[in-house]
């Protein structure tokens, strides 16, 4: 039972991180129908920003909690700056061209960002300080769950609640939903679609940055390639749940996290990806639009 619980919570942690990234994929897809393949790199840039910030702040003699908060804020700010700039440079000029053009541009951005960090930083794995505090109450249960996992799960839950409130009740949230459903009509009621798109990239990048900092702190090392792997997994989760659907991205991420965790724990860690992607294939055979995705029908 303990082992099951350990795997369950491990899967939940993984799923949380996937969800933080997958939401960026699915929201951008919802608004501009683009798979932003460089989204994983934004997560990686968030982690690197936090690493640099944490090192500098540490030398300056700040306490651990201050470092965590400041590093997180800086990671979010930098990731947003990269995300929004990427949209303006690589996607916006291609908005009225063929569907394939921005997709190729996205792959280009992904490769560019990886090499940019590779050259500016290093190709080696860098140790990442454990920024998340240790909770003493959890010590007796250390064989089931670590403090950092608790932080990841709780933070993700908090972010999801904030995101839901934002999308449901704020003016920009309504504008985002309207734009996703009918962009031309949104323009006709006065929505500035460019602003909505920028906002989508800001929200997506912020969540990716939070995910990047959390997981780097949990695992303890990063390199320029982590965004690519996490990005592919999160993209899988978004498709699994139904690309374009926000609850779908969360559900898909959790399902993927648990699949990987249980496959690793009960069968073999060699088969982690086999099970993850095998499961994706199965879902797509029986539900081509994903778990919560709708086959789009339009009534005229």
């Amino acid at each position: 039972m303990d082992y099951f619980l350990e795997l369950f919570l491990g899967g939940l942690t993984r799923g949380s991180i996937y969800a933080l990234i997958a939401l960026g994929y699915t929201m951008v897809y919802g608004i501009i129908e683009l798979i932003n393949f460089a989204h994983g790199e934004i997560y990686m840039i968030g982690a690197f920003t936090a690493l640099i910030a944490a090192s500098v702040l540490n030398i300056m003699g700040f306490g651990p909690v201050t470092i965590l908060i400041l590093a997180m804020v800086l990671a979010i700010v930098y990731s947003c700056a990269y995300g929004v700039t990427m949209e303006k440079i690589a996607y916006k000029p291609l908005r009225h061209s063929t569907r394939l053009a921005p997709l190729i541009s996205a792959i280009g951005m992904s490769i560019f960002f990886q090499n940019y960090v590779l050259l500016a930083q290093t190709s080696d794995f860098l140790p990442f300080p454990s920024l998340l505090p240790e909770l003493e109450i959890l010590e007796p249960y250390a064989y089931i769950i670590r403090s950092s996992e608790v932080f990841i799960i709780l933070t993700t839950f908090g972010v999801m609640v904030l995101l839901t409130l934002l999308i449901k009740f704020t003016r920009i949230g309504k504008a985002m939903r309207a734009t996703a459903q009918d962009r031309t009509m949104a323009m006709l009621v006065g929505v500035d679609v460019n602003r909505v798109i920028s906002m989508t990239f800001i929200i997506g990048s912020s969540m990716a940055a939070i995910g990047g900092v959390l997981i780097a702190s949990h695992i303890g090392q990063i390199n320029f390639y982590i965004g690519f792997i996490a990005g592919i997994k999160a993209f899988t989760a978004a498709v699994l749940g139904g690309i374009g659907s926000i609850p779908g991205a969360v559900l898909g991420s959790l399902v993927l996290g648990w699949t990987e965790s249980f496959a690793t724990g009960y069968i073999s860690s060699d088969y982690e990806d086999v099970f993850a992607f095998g499961f994706l294939v199965l879902i797509l055979i029986f539900r081509p639009a994903g778990l919560l995705g709708k086959a789009t029908t339009q009534k005229v």
């Binding site: 309504k174 939903r177 006709l188 009621v189 006065g190 009534k299």
Partner: peptide, 26 residues
């Protein structure tokens, strides 16, 4: 200048109330 476009183009997943609120967006 406001348009009621051909085919009505109601936001299908927004409620009637939210559709009306979108009309008053500005």
């Amino acid at each position: 200048i406001c348009q009621v476009p051909e085919g009505r183009r109601i936001f299908p997943n927004l409620t009637v109330m939210e559709n009306l609120e979108m009309g008053a967006f500005l």
